[in-house]
Write a protein that binds this DNA or RNA. Structure first.
Lengths: 180, 180
DNA sequence: ATCGATACATGATCTGGATCATGTCGGAAA
DNA sequence: TTTCCGACATGATCCAGATCATGTATCGAT
């Protein structure tokens, strides 16, 4: 069977047993030892860190096709909780089986290619978010990825770390400046 | 020889020929095909994207021990320029030799472990930077990494994406609130 | 001991964007 | 077609934090 690189986890988890979780269910908890690895087949799981003040910080949203808490493959403890944000279906394999599978063929190379691209994208996003003004962030975004289609702006606002309202105002100002 | 995981690139580039660049020199340019891979031995290289408006966005700073533009191992073009921010010494190998080396032993698994941790850290940083107030970002940072020593606060300010002045003010306010 | 670089610290000012409110528009579903 | 939801849009208000200025403390190097 042919697998494209970005589907490395689908390949490794092919035929793996599945588990179903209801919305709000916990897949694993902080400080648990990672015995299993989970590939999300359906739904969304958030990695949530409980803060001292009683609040919580969502560190990641894992969706279809992605491995849950990838770094935990190589860690001896989970560093946050995994909570289902929706009804969820995951494929589940013993952690060491997944690590073994990575050592075969060139699976680890494929996974590394994915991870490298992810790192690259995240580094870009961090640098864009470090810019102080909305204008500068938007310029940088458009330069990196081009202008989005209508209906996508709200996602851009999220990506560059500003509210949609503020982005719409900047866009309006640019339209006006273009028209005179 | 024993290599710890985080030194995977040192291992792969062991004995590789070196190149020296002066500050300001360009290692590669955007749209060049990646023929070589570079591991930084000394100095700092920035990945710089030139923007349409004539400005530039630094997407990454690569230092000692790290592979330059890791994702370019698996890409057919560089997506930005690599410019030396200091006097630089790099180890240099043909790209395909590095990819081959990854396929041997468990090198790719070690590199993947590093990359996964990097992804995890960057995701955390993005989520912290999405928080709207300095107070919330600082709380989240301290919760994740603990209070830094004296002399490190300025780096925290950078990490959470605020100016040092603003951070010092927040710290002063917290000291006052603690004493009363 | 002196010098220089950098972190720490605080004041004054000003503005970009968060927030809340309110409304229109466009596309998908019934 | 009508209904409904989310994106798009804009007004009013307010304040957190950027910016600039200025000064002190700390530490390593000579």
């Amino acid at each position: 069977m042919i697998w494209i690189m970005s589907e490395i986890w689908q390949k490794i988890f092919f035929g793996a047993p599945e588990r179903i979780y209801e919305k709000g269910a916990t897949v694993f908890r902080r400080d648990d030892p990672p015995r299993f690895a989970y590939a999300v087949r359906e739904g969304m799981i958030v990695l949530r860190r409980s803060l001292a003040d009683g609040g919580a910080l969502d560190l990641q949203k894992t969706r279809k096709g992605a491995l849950l808490a990838e770094a935990s493959l190589f860690a001896d403890r989970y560093h946050c909780d995994a909570v289902c944000a929706t009804h969820v279906r995951v494929a589940c394999l013993p952690r060491r089986d997944v690590v073994s599978a990575l050592s075969e063929d060139r699976n680890a190379v494929a996974a590394l290619a994915d991870a490298s691209r992810e790192v690259q994208g995240l580094r870009s996003r961090v640098e864009v978010m470090r810019l102080k003004t909305l204008r500068a962030r938007l310029d940088a975004y458009i330069d990196l990825f081009g202008k989005p289609k209508r209906g996508e702006w709200v996602r851009i606002a999220d990506w560059i770390g500003v509210t949609p309202e503020a982005l719409y105002r900047e866009l309006a100002a640019r339209r006006k400046a273009a028209n005179i």
